[in-house]
Amino acid sequence: MYWTNFYNPRNPLSDIGRIQRDLHRLFNEYYPETQRAFPAVNIWTKDDSAVVTAELPGFTKKDVKLSVVDQDVIIEGEPVSEKRNEKEHYHRRERSRSMFKRSIHLPFPIDASKVDARLNNGVLVMSLPRAEEDKPKKIEIQA
């Protein structure tokens, strides 16, 4: 049979992995857009807190909603429409102006009451302290 040439009896799943990789590559080539989650984020961490930054040009703080659920931060937003005129005509339209919702998983649970978020010049910076009960406890050896 044709496929037996490729079939590896020691690891029958390797074929599936290969197919998945090939498909992934194919889709990435033709539809790179589908891989993009909006907004793009950077995550910075240290032992007891994390900083998440995202670029949200054109969004005001009223347009963006943030929530924290245990280990996840959810960013969602809807842009206010820029004034539209019936007679206007677009030569280029490269900026994304759509609704978004994105959840970001962090390495530790967050103390939601101590989160600090700022949106300045289109950049969102959230500082997310690790929940007190999740922090490692130092244990003294008694004897």
Binding site: V41, N42, P107
Partner: peptide, 8 residues
């Protein structure tokens, strides 16, 4: 902080 994950 250490950069742990980067998209942009």
């Amino acid at each position: 902080y250490q950069l742990a994950y980067s998209e942009y």
